[in-house]
Design a protein around this nucleic acid. Structure first.
Lengths: 167, 167
DNA sequence: TGTCAACTTTACACCGTGTCAAGTAAACTG
DNA sequence: CAGTTTACTTGACACGGTGTAAAGTTGACA
């Protein structure tokens, strides 16, 4: 909080006038980034795709491209999980929104009859949700040194291999 | 530290006589669990498998079955990543050991000529390492409500779909 | 001119980690 | 047996970070 106040050019106490707790500051920041970076518009594109396969691909690109924007925040919010129920709830809420995108993409695959027959939609959604997690992005991009483009193309490819019936 | 001391029936200060910092206590605990649960023996089994496919499967079962044992510790150690370089290094070290298992399993697939031809060994190892991360276990078992058996079988199946050439 | 809003400075409470010092009690040793 | 060592005790305190509280300053607006 001290560092943020300093960077903002106000006193630490003035910061508390705007944001009562550190958790609420972080949550407000995510809301702000969401509106500035227009996450809704990005995800709307993926909903507009015609085929299930395109929908899956554009969902992964839309969300995968958004991860770097919120990554620092994601780390901060996740580190508060233990100890601040409000922060945990805020983060979970955002992740549930991503999950909804996964469910929709999987439903589109199922509608096109290209979902692997040995997967039900729940399991497929869980797997996709896991594949596109921020943690996996961190591991591949930060720890393994992948570029963003490599991340997007390999995850897309992996999701297709995992979820789509063999042609 | 207070809680741990209380649970151990000694004073907080006595705890500091044994473990100079919280990070070192956590690190010592991982070492202790490793020896009690005999992680080496578990992974040795996976190295003994004959075919690449068996090796991959037994590696996933060995490591995947170990995750629940160290999960709580993993959370504590990961939460210290920012702020304690020693704890971060200790955790990274353990994850590098897992990565080594991934590299070996991928090499076994390559030796059997059943590694997907469009994947090089580095990329395949990175993907496998990501799939078997503790974070993915948390998501599937804790957040999605999967049983341990479901986790193991689906991750094994996913790893095979991701890494092995179509037959 | 007065009031309100945004901000300032200063001070303090609370928690958790880690340090320090002095004391005690039991075990080991010559 | 006396003396030392070892493992612990109690109690105090420093430090950093979050959050609270109170009184004072400044500028805008009515």
């Amino acid at each position: 909080m001290t560092d943020i106040a300093k960077a903002a050019g106000i006193s630490r106490q003035a910061l508390y006038l705007h944001f009562p707790t550190r958790a609420e500051l972080l949550i407000a920041t995510t809301r702000h980034i969401d509106s500035v970076k227009d996450v809704d518009a990005r995800l709307a594109d993926s909903r507009a795709a015609n085929t299930g396969r395109d929908r899956l691909a554009s969902f992964i690109v839309a969300w995968g491209g958004y991860i770097p924007e919120i990554h620092g925040l994601s780390v901060a919010l996740r580190n508060m999980r233990d100890g601040d129920a409000e922060a945990a709830a805020a983060w979970d809420d955002r992740m549930q929104a991503v999950r909804q995108g996964c469910v929709s993409a999987v439903a589109a695959l199922a509608a096109d009859k290209i979902l692997r027959p040995d997967l039900n939609e729940k399991v497929a959604s869980d797997l996709l949700w896991t594949l596109v997690s921020v943690e996996n992005w961190e591991r591949l991009v930060r720890d393994c040194g992948w570029s963003q483009a490599e991340y997007e193309s390999h995850i897309r490819w992996l999701a297709e291999a995992a979820l789509m019936a063999k042609d």
